[in-house]
């Protein structure tokens, strides 16, 4: 049994310690908002927060997390920055298929937490690891700036 703190709740999961958090979230806990895209830290679809920092859950072994706080897309709306980003995403209608957007929103929220008024270079640095096959990048950039203003 491994005990985790996810979105403020503590959960005990029966999983091998080398199992990536992504699959623990999706397949054991049924938190399917966090997505699988590449499994190699190349696309960002699986991004969650660990103690507020964006982390690729597809490579993060669940045994290495300990009591650090995990936040997923299901919980990010409860944080001020997360709520802001989600609202901006809707105001600017960023989403297309939406599959990458959980990861985009987690990365963008972390950016806003660390850099309340990001410049383009900050957005590039924080978001370039998140692939969007539908090509919503233009709106992602606008939405982050929009969220930063409100």
């Amino acid at each position: 049994m491994i005990s985790l703190r996810i979105n403020g709740e503590s959960k005990d999961v029966d999983a091998p310690p080398d199992m990536p958090l992504l699959w623990v979230l999706r397949d054991i806990l049924g938190l399917t908002g966090t997505k699988f895209g590449c499994g190699m830290a190349l696309c960002g679809a699986c991004t969650v927060h660990v103690d507020g920092a964006p982390v690729r859950s597809c490579l993060l072994s669940v045994g290495s997390i300990g009591q650090r706080a995990i936040t997923t897309i299901e919980g990010i709306g409860a944080t001020p920055a997360g709520a802001k980003i989600q609202k901006a995403w809707l105001d600017l209608e960023v989403v297309q298929c939406g599959y990458c957007q959980s990861g985009q929103i987690m990365s963008a929220t972390a950016l806003l937490n660390g850099t309340p008024h990001p410049e383009d270079s900050d957005i590039d640095a924080a978001m370039a690891g998140n692939i969007c096959r539908c090509g919503t990048y233009v709106r992602i950039r606008e939405a982050i700036k929009h969220a930063a203003q409100n």
């Binding site: 938190l31 399917t32 908002g33 709306g77």
Partner: peptide, 23 residues
């Protein structure tokens, strides 16, 4: 009119269910 999309609210909260999310 540029109406808001019906499918997006659930897509920004992780609630939207794709085939891969069927449980």
């Amino acid at each position: 009119k540029p109406l808001k999309r019906l499918d997006t609210p659930d897509k920004v909260t992780g609630k939207a269910v794709y085939g891969i999310d069927a449980m």
